Amino acid sequence: MFDRFPDLKLMISHGGGPIPYQIGRWRSHREMARAQGRIAADAPQFDEILRKFWFDTVLHNPDSLALLFKTVGHDRCCFGTERPGSGDGINPVSGRHYDDLKPVIEALPSLDQAALNGVFEGNARRLFSRLDV
């Protein structure tokens, strides 16, 4: 699809769903297909294709968010929330709504200020380039 529409921008909601957890399986299946001749030997690696997608941060768990950023890169993630919505429950540990995600993301040690700026605004401006018009 990206060969036919190189400027296509697709966002996968909810942190890509199972992608960060199943990525090893999908890499393996891609390489098995390559070995069997079902895709070209010079076709892009799975991770090259994955970097063409965008992901939102609508996950209610800091460990899941950390894995998402580690797997797809913070530069492919845009801040998202469902408040009010499925994350309206109160986290008994923090006392905040589960999808009060900004402080959760800000507390991740793997993200510096530049990465946070990207997640909270800059990446969305790259994804939705007409925002600056």
Rank of each mutant, 00 (worst) to 15 (best):
75 D>V: 04
8 L>C: 06
92 P>R: 00
116 L>Q: 12
14 H>Y: 06
55 F>L: 01
133 V>S: 14
93 V>I: 04
26 W>Y: 15
89 G>P: 00
13 S>Y: 10
68 L>K: 03
105 I>Q: 01
83 R>T: 12
131 L>G: 05
73 G>D: 01
14 H>R: 09
13 S>D: 13
22 Q>R: 15
120 F>P: 06
27 R>F: 04
132 D>L: 15
81 T>V: 01
68 L>F: 01
22 Q>A: 15
133 V>W: 14
53 F>L: 09
8 L>W: 11
75 D>G: 03
29 H>Y: 15
112 D>K: 12
3 D>S: 12
34 R>N: 05
3 D>I: 12
66 A>S: 00
21 Y>W: 15
129 S>T: 15
98 Y>P: 06
60 H>N: 13
112 D>C: 10
87 G>L: 02
35 A>T: 01
50 L>E: 03
75 D>I: 00
4 R>K: 12
12 I>H: 12
19 I>M: 11
78 C>I: 09
60 H>L: 09
111 L>D: 04
100 D>I: 09
13 S>E: 13
44 P>D: 02
117 N>Q: 14
102 K>C: 08
127 L>P: 05
126 R>N: 13
125 R>D: 14
20 P>A: 03
133 V>I: 14
17 G>Q: 09
46 F>H: 07
55 F>V: 05
44 P>Y: 05
10 L>D: 11
49 I>K: 09
53 F>E: 03
45 Q>A: 15
63 D>N: 11
11 M>G: 12
73 G>H: 00
66 A>V: 03
13 S>P: 09
14 H>A: 07
127 L>S: 07
68 L>Q: 01
121 E>S: 14
120 F>R: 05
124 A>K: 04
106 E>D: 13
110 S>C: 13
95 G>D: 02
111 L>C: 01
73 G>R: 03
76 R>T: 01
111 L>R: 01
102 K>T: 08
52 K>N: 09
50 L>H: 07
28 S>M: 15
129 S>N: 15
97 H>G: 11
96 R>K: 10
98 Y>I: 03
21 Y>K: 04
97 H>V: 10
1 M>L: 13
4 R>M: 12
125 R>Y: 13
65 L>R: 00
76 R>H: 07
28 S>N: 15
12 I>A: 08
47 D>H: 06
36 Q>L: 09
19 I>E: 14
52 K>S: 08
74 H>M: 00
120 F>L: 05
35 A>S: 02
